[in-house]
Simulated scan of single mutants.
Amino acid sequence: MPDQKRIALLIDCDNVSHNSIEGVLEELANYGLVNVRHAHGDWKNPALAGWAEKLHPNAIRPMQQFAYTKGKNATDSAMIIDAMDLLYSKGVEAFALMTSDSDFTPLVLRILESGFPVYGFGERKTPQPFVDACSIFIYTENLLAECVSSESVIGVKPKSRNELRGDTSLVRLLRTAAEKTAEDDGWSLLSKVGHYISNNSSFSVINYGYKKLGDLIRSTELFEVDMRNGGTAMYIQDSRKNS
C-alpha cells in the first residue's frame, strides 16, 4: 500500500457546525491519512455541546481556549499558533481547516507558500477570499449525513444542465482548463484538465452535487467526449469547435 499523505485537521468550533464532521473526515480520506485532529474552542461554553459529543467517536483532540477578553476570539489565535507549530514540526504534509471565518485567509496563504496544500471546509456563509485561497474548498452543507438520499450519495442533488451552464465562472474554468491542456489534435485528457483546475482554483465537484469531474462535464453538455484506451481514458473537446 503506497504511503498516504499525512493531514492535520484543525477545527474552529466557534464558526462551523459539528453536524458535518463525519462527512469531512470521509472526504479527507480521499487525500490521505488525518493523523492530527484538533478541535479548538472554549469547552466550558454550552454552545459547543454538540461538538463535545463528536470528539471521542471521531478521535478528535479538544484544544481548550479560554475567552480571556470579551469580544476577542482566542480560538483564532490559538489555531494559527497550532498550525504554525505543525508546519515547522514536519509531521504533516497537508492541512485541512474547518472554519467559516475569513480571518484564516493569511494562514492559508502562509501554508501554501511552504508548499503544503490546504483543504478548506466551511458553511455557505464563508467569505469568498477564504474559499478562493484554499487548494480545494467544500461547503459543509454538502457533506451532511442526514441529507444523503437515493438521488445523491454525497448529500446534495446534482445540479442540472441549465444550472451548471448558468454558472459563468464554472463554464469559464472548464473551458479554459480544456483549452490549456489540449493536445495537438485539439482533445484534452480529463486527468490533465483536473490537474489544471486543482492548480488554479479551489473548485470541488462536490459543491455541484457530483463525485467525479467527468460526470459533471458530461452533464454540462458543453464538451464532446471521446473514450480512448479501451474506455479507460476520457478525452474532452469544447463543442463549439465543431459548430
Rank of each mutant, 00 (worst) to 15 (best):
R6G: 03
I7E: 00
I7M: 05
N15D: 06
N19I: 11
S20R: 04
S20W: 01
E22T: 15
V24D: 02
Y31Q: 06
G32M: 05
L33N: 10
H40E: 06
D42N: 15
W43G: 12
A47Q: 12
G50A: 11
G50W: 03
G50I: 06
A52N: 05
P57F: 05
A59P: 00
M63C: 12
Q64A: 13
F66I: 02
T69S: 14
K72F: 11
K72Y: 12
N73G: 14
A74S: 14
D76C: 14
G91Y: 02
G91F: 03
V92D: 01
A96D: 00
V108I: 11
L109S: 09
R110S: 15
G115W: 05
V118C: 04
G120L: 05
E123S: 15
P127M: 07
F130C: 07
V131I: 12
A133E: 02
F137V: 06
A145I: 04
C147Q: 08
S149H: 10
S152P: 06
V153I: 10
P158M: 03
L164F: 00
R165I: 01
D167Q: 06
L170T: 02
L170K: 01
R172D: 04
L173I: 02
R175H: 14
E179Q: 11
D185F: 11
G194H: 05
S202F: 04
S204I: 08
I206P: 01
L216K: 09
R218D: 14
R218A: 15
E221Y: 08
F223T: 12
E224Y: 14
E224V: 12
Q237H: 10
Q237T: 12
S243F: 05
